[in-house]
Design a binder for these strands. Structure first.
Lengths: 211, 211
DNA sequence: TAGATTGTTAATCGATTAACAATC
DNA sequence: TAGATTGTTAATCGATTAACAATC
């Protein structure tokens, strides 16, 4: 796995996985790169190139086994892993994340939730009792935690990130605009910038109108 | 504006905007492409190429005016526009979106919220009384709406999308896995796929360990 | 004027697409 | 065997980076 795969390819993997899961649920057994490409909105060439980065999963004259390929991508993504995560921030966004995400099938397990708002501390979320921020360090000392989900505004992340880093957390799923990777280059950060996405929509709408 | 700008450039615009806003707030008046590049984690060449897609905003020997450039990107993105949007789904995610996003400074205005859960209908969100799904069509007939924010699971989107399309809505900010652009190619769709992002984090963690 | 830094052209690099021999 | 479709190499396309003349 030391071959360097471009980020473009990596970001397509979850989509392959998603569509294959659907096909599998529909009882489809085999699929050709051409058909998979049309579902993915890509070229057959791209599909074959993408997959061959990781191995020869197809069979000439036949195509790919839907469930076989899905399982392979499962392994490539490492969805069978169980990274231990804590959630920082139990506001609307934190609750949405905790409620909607099926972490277990995404390679993670949510072990604890922290929040600074006293009104929220002590209430339950996804079967977990919400803890005060002051407990982060002691919790991380007692439990193995490698990942943090940050559903907090930039300012709060700025105030809390050092604690998390010092507690040994190197993997971040970050909804804030705080630039974690800049401050700590040895971390792996995946950002979800919802407002950037909405701005992009705004641009594309206007671009479309101005043509 | 008919020059075709690549999506890579477009997706960097919100980040330029964000960093320039910060610099402006810090009282910084001018910036060179080199410094902006280091903030953006890019090359000075890329910064200059990106910006020159839209105009010559800099000045030789000086650099770029921070607030001037920010205003230009504002205009390029069309953040001064006021697209009229409705929110579909007032669960945790919908509430997070409605609560956290500063739509007014992102080119949108949220005009109404719809939900099917009877327990939620009638409660307030961002100053709006949540309406039942059954009112979508009549609402869209009486008001000008061009955008829908979809914080609903795939199944619900599948059931509701035809209504929205028939009501004339062509712009979608989509949190679900329903492929709107495939069904309606004349729409503009911006997807936020949180689980894809988390899978990508999972991959990158494992890749890092396997080296 | 000299120094700094842009705007822009040219060079490089990498990703996507096309083509086709291999083979199921 | 013939048809289908992969795996893979080669060609193309586009994005990024480098270089430098223009100019503030």
């Amino acid at each position: 796995m030391s071959k360097n795969i471009s980020i473009q390819v990596i970001r397509r993997l979850p989509r392959y996985h998603r569509f294959l899961k659907e096909l599998e649920a529909q009882g489809v057994e085999r699929i050709s790169s051409t058909k998979l490409a049309s579902i993915m909105n890509a070229t057959a060439s791209q599909v074959r190139q993408d997959l061959n980065n990781f191995g020869g999963f197809g069979q000439q004259g036949y195509g790919y086994s839907v469930s076989g390929l899905k399982d392979e991508i499962d392994k490539i993504l490492g969805l069978d892993k169980k990274h231990h995560a804590i959630l920082l921030g139990a506001g609307n966004l934190g609750r949405a994340v905790a409620t909607h995400m099926n972490f277990e099938s995404l390679g993670f397990q949510l072990d604890a939730v922290f929040e600074k708002d006293e009104k929220i501390i002590g209430t339950m979320l996804r079967g977990l009792k919400i803890c005060p921020d002051s407990k982060i360090e002691s919790y991380c000392k007692e439990h193995y935690i490698d990942t943090a989900f940050l559903s907090l505004p930039k300012k709060s992340v700025s105030a809390i990130i050092e604690k998390l880093y010092n507690a040994g957390i190197r993997y971040y799923w970050n909804f804030s605009h705080f630039d974690i990777a800049k401050k700590y280059p040895d971390t792996i950060v995946e950002n979800v910038h919802m407002s950037d996405s909405l701005m992009t929509l705004c641009y594309r709408i206007n671009e479309n109108k101005n043509i």
